[in-house]
Design a protein around this nucleic acid. Structure first.
Lengths: 194, 194
DNA sequence: GGAACCAGCCTAGCTCTCCTAGGCAACCGG
DNA sequence: CCGGTTGCCTAGGAGAGCTAGGCTGGTTCC
């Protein structure tokens, strides 16, 4: 009696709902219980679709890294040099602005041994970052150094901005961002030797 | 009977123990219960010294930010220009390497309204970062842009390194780090106009 | 069309963390 | 040595994570 129809849960639907929840309420509020509540279902029911809470977060991280890599790929298509740099960087920062919870999830510590899908997504994202450099024609190992610098600079800036590090000062975060991109372009065009 | 002597807890001792725990076991394992266990005391006993679990983390963040600012100040003493940049950056990265849990705590989202002490420590740390730039003689608002870039680059690089982002590639993280410092120095010496 | 099977969601119940209320004992000042 | 304060206690409730096992709706196959 009362027998409601089934909720029709799948790992994919749960992951997507977790992503929405993360963006709305913050990554720390993405719990198995909260997700079950959102589907009007008991929390124990989710464990036929998810191994555990960690599994949920890894799936979420994988989703975010994949979306990020997709956006990066779209931004880079048909661009090179400074255009590519700026397009990639803006796509990265916009994603973090529009999807703070997903972005936070993408920063999760992943175990490449067991969490293969997530590691693949991370690798794809790293390859996109490397693609920025095609127009700058750097040899190895300089290219690797430059990739690390770029990724670090993007992530660091966005991360500080997200956690409110820039709110004391009146200088708009957008302005500092585009100055940083100018600086990074300049340094890539004139990469210091040795 | 059995009456053990008192443990002699204070907020300071608890915060220090939390810092050690964070470095040994990771920030996510810094819980009120774990801390009580470490002192051989019931978890409820800690609530006469700490408001709540959040309070503990904020105190930990404050400790970390203060230590970081102290190290930065020591590194900068008597140095200018490139020397100052490198000394600061290395102090920053070494701290994160030696104290990963404390470093992670320093990245906590702080509410400057209520968490005044923590906000002060964060401000002191930001002032140290700004002090790097004295030797480069940048006008405002370029100085603010440069501070944000530097802080972002340091934090981003260290953060990616900590979460294992560089372990696929054979290139040593140290080497890429010092190339990044070279690049940052170059860009500060020749800051792009407009 | 019935039987058997499964997949999907359930209840029950455990552990752990966080936190509050109230008790008793140790230490400290007078 | 007596009263007050402080410090740690027990008891207990809420919420999150997770496991074991049960019931049922939908599919499959004779």
């Amino acid at each position: 009696m009362g027998g409601m129809t089934r909720a029709g849960l799948t790992a994919e639907r749960l992951t997507l709902a977790a992503a929405e929840l993360a963006d709305e309420a913050g990554l720390e509020n993405v719990t198995v219980s909260a997700l079950a509540r959102r589907f009007g279902v008991k929390d124990a029911s989710l464990y036929s679709h998810l191994r555990n809470a960690r599994d949920l977060r890894v799936r979420l991280a994988t989703l975010a890294l994949t979306e990020l890599a997709d956006r990066a790929a779209a931004a880079l298509a048909g661009r090179a040099g400074r255009d590519a740099l700026v397009a990639f960087a803006d796509a990265y920062r916009d994603y973090a602005g529009q999807h703070p919870g997903r972005y936070a999830a993408a920063q999760l510590d992943l175990d490449p041994e067991t969490e293969t899908a997530a590691a693949d997504a991370a690798r794809r994202h790293a390859e996109m970052t490397r693609a920025i450099l095609r127009g700058y024609r750097l040899p190895e190992p300089d290219q690797t150094d430059a990739v690390r610098m770029l990724h670090g600079a993007f992530h660091g800036y966005v991360s500080l901005e997200r956690m409110g590090g820039f709110r004391h000062h009146p200088r708009p975060a957008d302005a500092s961002w585009s100055r940083m991109l100018d600086a990074l372009d300049a340094v890539l065009r004139n990469w210091p030797p040795q």
